[in-house]
Amino acid sequence: MPDKTDRVAERAAALDRLIGRAPIVPVLAVDDPEAAVPLARALVAAGVPALEIMLRTAAALEAIRRVATAVPEIAVGAGTVLNPAQFAAAQIHGAQFIVSPGATPALYAAAIDTGLPFLPGVVTPGEIMAALDHGFTRAKFFPAVTIGGPAALQMLAGAYPAMRFCPSGGLTAANIASFVREPNVFTAVADWVAPKEMLAAGDWAGITALTKAALQAAKGA
């Protein structure tokens, strides 16, 4: 049976493998499940290995199910997961990883019980310490710009050398490189690559182009 150190390493490796292979993770709100598969294929065409669908719409779980079934070449995660019931529903619908804007003992317990890769949201030193205490060394840093941006990440690096962050909240094509260049960042959220108007118009080529531009902006780090 693996010891705690092994389990911590396995959790980190799973997230690195799923969402850490590219400098960005597209984060999406999907209102129409019919758009989910062509949207995922547009992101694959741009070269990203993972996407996150936020549980902020009635279509989100069905969108996750369709992507998981029809586009296996991209990892699909569920975001804005707030409680164990949503965690379980996302897993049932095929989510390969779970992201929360914050974290609770109940969410940590769900992640540990299921073994599904989990990216807890943190913003304060105490929340980072709680994540580490539960055995999680990858976390969502949210809201990244509001809380101090790259300068905040620099200040946290010395105190928490084991933690790697995925900054989210206020990132743009203009500032994403300043986050990605920080050594304690393993990927970053790009939530502007699928605007509602492009989704409504089915402009998949436009979404591919925006995503490629976001990748290039992040690689500018």
Rank of each mutant, 00 (worst) to 15 (best):
A177K: 04
R41E: 15
I147R: 02
G169W: 06
T57S: 15
P125K: 07
R65T: 13
F97R: 02
P2T: 12
E34T: 10
R11K: 13
E182Y: 05
A90H: 00
A144C: 10
T137W: 07
S168D: 11
L51D: 02
G170P: 07
T211M: 03
D113R: 13
R56D: 06
V25W: 04
A12S: 14
A89C: 05
V180A: 07
D6Q: 14
P49F: 13
A29Y: 00
A68Y: 12
P161G: 08
H134W: 14
F179I: 06
A139K: 03
L15S: 03
V27K: 01
G79D: 01
K219E: 15
D6S: 14
P38R: 03
L28D: 02
G169T: 07
I53M: 03
P101T: 05
A162F: 08
P101W: 05
D133G: 15
T5S: 14
G47C: 14
G94Q: 10
D3N: 15
F97C: 04
G126T: 15
A9T: 13
L119H: 00
I64L: 09
H93F: 14
E197D: 15
G77D: 06
G220P: 07
M54K: 00
P167H: 00
L15H: 03
D32R: 14
P2A: 13
T137P: 03
G135Y: 08
F87T: 03
S178G: 11
E34S: 12
A103I: 05
H134Q: 14
A63F: 01
A221F: 07
S100M: 06
A205Q: 14
E10A: 15
P38Y: 05
V44T: 11
P161E: 12
P125N: 07
A22R: 06
T208S: 11
P195L: 07
V8F: 07
I92R: 14
A12I: 03
S100R: 02
P72Q: 10
L132G: 06
Q91S: 09
R11L: 09
G206L: 07
A12H: 02
L132P: 01
K4Y: 04
I53S: 01
A89L: 04
A22S: 15
A78K: 01
F87Q: 01
A103F: 04
H134P: 04
I64P: 01
T80F: 10
E34L: 13
L15Y: 04
P101H: 10
P117A: 11
A177Y: 03
V145M: 11
V122D: 00
T69S: 13
E73F: 06
I24E: 07
F165Q: 02
E127Q: 15
T57E: 12
L39E: 06
A89P: 04
M155G: 15
A70I: 08
I24K: 02
G148T: 05
A90K: 02
P26W: 04
P38I: 04
P49K: 07
E34P: 00
I112S: 11
W204L: 08
C166S: 13
K196L: 09
Q91M: 12
P150A: 14
